[in-house]
Write a protein that binds this DNA or RNA. Structure first.
Lengths: 152, 152
DNA sequence: ATCTAAAAGCGAATCATTCTCGTTTAATAT
DNA sequence: ATATTAAACGAGAATGATTCGCTTTTAGAT
């Protein structure tokens, strides 16, 4: 994802392409692990010390409204943000408060099929998110290295 | 769920049985629709006008820590609380911010089986919650009355 | 009945987020 | 290139949910 890509994404949504918006979107992509507004502000200020807190929040709202990013919320934490829009779920570690992306199209199809057959009365499903809560365990010595996250 | 039941639940967890704790737990059960701390405080103050805000928050924390209630969080809202501990999921209406319980043991088994067969590397699942996001639609005229929620 | 740790009460503090409003800027038309 | 204008930005104040620190009260044990 280059700066040009980001500019184009903003432009396609009819949003004015401003340095602040580029910086916020870039920060979320670079930081990559569901940053909070504070994380994003700290990151951006390294290069643009004068960006206002309020601006970052307003930019985040605009990006969410235009579906360029998503909000991610845990039971304990402040709001976090996620630039990855490809359908995925989240693993929440109750010990460390870490959130990890969990991609599994197989599971998505299973759920989609399930709800195609068993509709929920008086409800139109737009999106299904799994919050998989538990604990990260230390990697087993001989386990194959496998990734839950999308290749760059 | 009677007052005596509530007292017993607290007692079983080794919590002191205080009027404030009984009142909070009772409020969540009676209010029944994922109340916020503010909703709970308003409700309790009708009968006990002197309950402190901080106390309610402290009681909520204690109840969550002891697994007598759960936290429920949406993308937009303040924290909400839920007294129903029988495994269930939530329907989130993007229009109205209403949250409705969705019980479906069939689906729970499907998911449990799925993850028994397809373990997630280096992660131990404690709980899976579905956030089903979408819109409530008006009831169809001839649809059979069916309930998504547990009978009282 | 007494004791003691836990819980409640209360006001102040915290901190993420939002608001206000004057200033600047990106996009479009001239 | 320049002008126009609605949209976006910056700075700081305001808001509002939640927490803290401290004192007083109370549940439950001896």
């Amino acid at each position: 994802m280059t700066i040009t890509d980001i500019q184009q994404q903003l432009s396609e949504k009819g949003l004015k392409v401003t340095p602040q918006r580029i910086a916020v979107l870039e920060a979320i992509i670079k930081l990559n692990n569901h940053p909070s507004a504070e994380n994003i502000i700290d990151y951006i200020r390294k290069n643009y010390p004068n960006v206002s807190t309020a601006t970052v929040y307003k930019v985040l709202d605009a990006l969410v409204d235009n579906e360029l990013i998503k909000r991610v919320k845990t039971d304990k934490d402040v709001m976090r943000y996620d630039a990855i829009l490809h359908a995925h779920h989240h693993l929440y570690c109750t010990k460390t408060d870490k959130i990890k992306d969990y991609f599994n199209d197989d599971l998505n199809h299973l759920l989609a099929n399930y709800f195609k057959k068993h509709r929920i009365l008086d409800f139109e499903i737009a999106d299904i998110k799994l919050q998989i809560v538990g604990k990260f365990t230390s990697p087993k010595k001989n386990a194959l290295k496998k990734r839950n996250s999308l290749p760059k």
